[in-house]
Design a protein around this nucleic acid. Structure first.
Lengths: 161, 161
DNA sequence: GCTGTGTAGGTGCGCGTGCAACGTTCTAAG
DNA sequence: CTTAGAACGTTGCACGCGCACCTACACAGC
């Protein structure tokens, strides 16, 4: 039954399907591990960690809500509430934007930076643990290069419009 | 400001981080596109599509709830409700397992198979559209091979216990 | 037979998320 | 100046999910 099937069955399509399925599995698995680790060791959700991380990497530790939402792959409303929670816990603050009265900055507080520093080892360890030493650094780099061509980083221009 | 940064900043860590971030972006982006496409064109959620797909590939169009949950990367309870909905819509049925009174099969109905056949082109088109023709088939295959080594498919043994 | 441990699936509950709609502010056209 | 349209962020709402717990059954061992 299902004699090593699945692969042979779906390749009526093409390689994209295979890559896509693995992307799914990989992302879900890693996400769950990180979420669990961060939660038990630091009482911090993965999404929260990513917000803190993005802010810490941003100039002046601040980012517009919109930019931040794009970076952490969250909807605008989703980010609003997440920032609500982080603000309640004193990890970030909201700050008005001088040049645009509509805009708000999410700013990382010292407490938030400290919390991030605490959790960072857990996060890094968790990520590495999900990559068994089956690929050497060079393969990994090539893999990264391929994925990067497939899914370029919107970083600076916010998105390739 | 963030002079093409992000990459340089985080590579205090290692290549795994880069791959991981792309995995996230890729998975989230593709998921959203597929979800939206399937929803507007066929009123079908992505998770539902994947259940139908797995069942259609399974012998006799049936799978134990547990197996199915693993394959579609859902918790047991999550699958319970999803099957509830699909059953309500007549796309799958529950069937008792003769050899194990605790067990239940989720079985694809003819209606479900038809619905899957309808939606399949949308799904395939959506996936391919997310892979710009920047990689030839060979590169894609190598990429798939790498990912497969990193995140092996639990397919038959249900999981490497 | 009974009893204990593990497994299959379902249920109550709370949480996080996205969508649609809203108020506010910026920008451009008249 | 006024008005139309777009952009930024927030809020009401409903939905889907996972966790913890529960029941029913399986398979030991005695």
């Amino acid at each position: 039954m299902t004699l090593t099937a699945g692969e042979s069955r779906e390749s009526i399509g093409s390689e994209e399907l295979v890559v896509w399925r693995m992307l799914q599995r990989a992302q879900v698995r890693i996400t769950r591990v990180l979420e669990a680790d961060l939660l038990v060791e630091h009482d911090l959700a993965l999404a929260s960690y990513e917000v803190l991380l993005q802010l810490s990497e941003a100039p002046e530790r601040r980012l517009r809500m919109n930019d931040l939402a794009d970076r952490v792959l969250l909807s605008r409303s989703g980010l609003t509430r997440l920032i609500d929670r982080l603000q309640r816990d004193g990890l970030v603050e909201r700050e008005a934007c001088a040049s645009d009265a509509r805009g708000l900055f999410a700013v990382l507080t010292d407490g938030g930076a400290a919390r991030l520093a605490e959790a960072s080892p857990t996060y890094l360890r968790g990520v590495r643990a999900q990559f068994p030493d089956m690929l050497d650094a060079d393969e990994l780099r090539r893999c990264a290069a391929m994925l990067n061509r497939l899914f370029p980083d919107p970083q600076v221009p916010t998105d390739p419009y």
